[in-house]
Amino acid sequence: MAQLSVQGIDTAYDRIDVLHGVSLDVEPGRITCILGSNGSGKTTLIRSILGLTPPHAGDIVFEGASLVGQPTHRIVGRGIACIPEGRRIFPKMTVAENLAVGAYQLSDEAEVARRAAQVYELFPRLKERRDQLAGTMSGGEQAMVSVGRGLMAKPKMLIIDEPSLGLSPLYVKENFRIIRRINDMGITVLLVEQNVRQTLAIAHYGYVLSQGRMVAHGAAADLAADAEVRAAYFG
């Protein structure tokens, strides 16, 4: 059974529908990706799942319970974390404080410290810079802060929105390696990307969004071979 199931949602901004009957299933323990060009509705889909822009029709079910109408902090409390587009680190907080915000809903201090240690193990650079203001770091380092912060809540499912946007090719490669490691820890990954080839190379299953509608889905290997999808995507 799918861990997350988006069932025919319509989502609007200012009463104009951006998503039209979008459905999607995310299997536990897998990497599921959403491909689509700018303006295809990828970010709106993520905002719908997180309750930031709730859908006005359809349902979103996570582990058997509906998320629609729940405030964002409750949805996050169910075990969904997000690494938002553009990293969105807190610039006037230190690295350590950024990580602490990521673990906001945890009250067990020992557990928070344990997770911070895990993040520092994954990104030794963050440990060196734990007391530096995050806003003064390089783009690549900020990306590490954002990923580390997303892991602090030890989510069941992690939504990663456009992680390679604005990063140098070297960091992009590193990023995909990290996403795979995150998935190896047993965390379900919902990955939103424009970088088709590298994304399909690490994903298990993929969806293609175009103009607010799901136009194709299938196993990543099949999608990669599908000429029609390429046309829709690059078109």
Partner: peptide, 14 residues
């Protein structure tokens, strides 16, 4: 401070 710096991201952090 999180809400002051970026309210929406603060919400995403729970």
């Amino acid at each position: 401070r999180a809400v002051a710096q970026d309210g929406e991201t603060a919400r995403i952090m729970g």
